[in-house]
Amino acid sequence: MSRSLLRSVLELRTPITRLPPSFLLPIQARRSLSSTTTSQTPSSIPATPLDNIAKPAPAATATATTTPTGEPVAASSAAAAAAALYPKQPQTPTTLSPESAQSIAQLLPLLRAQPAHYITAHIWGRPYLVTAGDQIRLPFRMPGAVPGDVLRLDRASALGSRDYTLRGAPYVDERLFECRAVVTGVETEPLRVKVKTKRRQRRNKTVKSKHRYTILRINELVIKGPEAIGL
């Protein structure tokens, strides 16, 4: 009872639940929503997302922005150990067929021109359809991740806007997008109690479990132009 009361109070406090239903919202509402939620994020990455949105950054500048952020990391050994825990995994390059290359060159600028984008990012093989500002609860606790860690999601099976979708087979080229997520914390589920009974025995055994789940917030999703893969 007290938990549901607490939850209703918490829901009243968040601005998202007080919005009218989605069919009453204007089409651009997702844009404004994402900007408010990103403003709540800790100022861990100061001006980089704005820079990347403002100019269509090719792949070369993207690597240039990531290298200076990597240098202060090496100062603390614990952080370096954490970075070694989840190193970058290069994608196995796939050759595009001429038809798909042509359709990317023609249609990807149209996809980019529409404002709000979504991505179907895969983490450990599971798909998460998210847009910037979304919060996701992973179905597991990520070992070694602490709040504030910036994760770069690099496997996506689909990128899209309102009218266009770019589908990968199985994954979209990782140079075509930049998706960053921040670890915001760990959540626990309500205590689960399972009563185990055995035949012809008088006592029951109760097994308790309370799993912990890592919470991520997608704070940046930038879709690059076809020039990022040399088209």
Binding site: A78, A82, A83, Q89, A121, V146, V150
Partner: peptide, 15 residues
């Protein structure tokens, strides 16, 4: 094992 799908770009400060 499926692909991990993320990498740690910027670790937070650890105590």
């Amino acid at each position: 094992r499926p692909e991990r799908g993320f990498w740690l770009e910027k670790p937070a400060h650890r105590a």
